[in-house]
Simulated scan of single mutants.
Amino acid sequence: MTSREDETLAQAAVAALTGQLALAPKPGLPDPRDLAARATRVDHRALRWSAKALAPGLAAMAAAARRTGEPTPRLRAELGAIGRSTEHSVGLAGGGHRGALWTLGLLVAAAALDPRARGAEVAATAKRIAAHTDRGAPRRPSRGSTVSAKYGAAGARGEARAGFPHVRRALGALAAARTAGATEPQARLDALLIVMSTLQDTELLHTAGPVGLRLVQAGARAVLEAGGTSTQAGREALASLDTDLHTRAWSPRGSAGLLAGALFVDSLPVIAQVKAV
């Protein structure tokens, strides 16, 4: 049974995901601009709708963590089982968000385990959960794990077991951009580009190979080196990267899920204020 706190965490995670979806222009990624004509073939409204289907599963993950009280192998197995059930529900609602579910599920569970944790502390707790093996996971390797093994990339599992370094980098980028006077959308886009600039995105490795991945990383760095999305030069570089990725049908989906994770962790102080009211 979930509590009000569990539901609050789940809704905050869904809000982080829909907030990520609302950003534009996101190079190679779904956003509000005429998605039906894009290589993703997924309508933006459908993605927003299916994101809501994550809420019950995320609340159940928070409840499991709160009930268990420690990042144990048992908790890891329970989170895996809830995650697989939630994937099925999301599929019925339109699909998508598999990578975001992995990231948000671990971070929601971590926040439930330690309600006072913020920022890197939440990522560190998620690392302790992810360190355990999910014994109930299907033995058949996923596409992501196959690509990770082929190219030696960390992949989603490696990212979690390292304490979500790209979530932490995105949090730092959000803080820096806000301090520099960027608008909130600009700060979030800069955070996305920070992730894209170094992440070994298995989706990109699958579709574009190592050379394509390096081109995307270099394109993201070019936007940041031009001053980021709060500058005219940065916006022009972003538009060029966006056009290039959509022409090639390359989508850095792993970066999008990690940005959603960062936006969730960033929202935790607000959650604490809501609970106190």
Rank of each mutant, 00 (worst) to 15 (best):
A226S: 15
S145N: 02
A187N: 04
G209A: 13
G19R: 14
T2P: 05
Q232H: 12
L174H: 01
T40I: 08
R161I: 00
A182V: 02
L259W: 01
S267H: 07
R4N: 06
A111F: 00
L29C: 09
P25L: 15
A160Q: 00
T207K: 14
A24F: 06
K150E: 05
S267V: 06
R84P: 03
A262N: 05
V147K: 11
T68S: 14
E7A: 15
L9I: 10
T231K: 12
G105D: 12
S50T: 15
P25F: 13
D242E: 14
A22M: 07
V122Q: 07
V265D: 13
A53N: 09
R84I: 10
A239M: 08
L47A: 15
T146G: 04
T183K: 00
R76W: 02
E159K: 08
V274S: 11
R169G: 12
G119D: 14
Q11T: 06
A100K: 07
H166L: 01
K275Q: 11
L192K: 01
A100C: 04
G94Q: 06
E184C: 00
A111Y: 03
L35N: 11
A117Q: 10
A256W: 04
R143H: 11
T202H: 07
L23H: 07
A36V: 07
A156W: 00
H206G: 06
E159M: 04
G95W: 08
G105H: 08
L47Q: 13
V108G: 05
G227S: 11
L215M: 04
G163H: 03
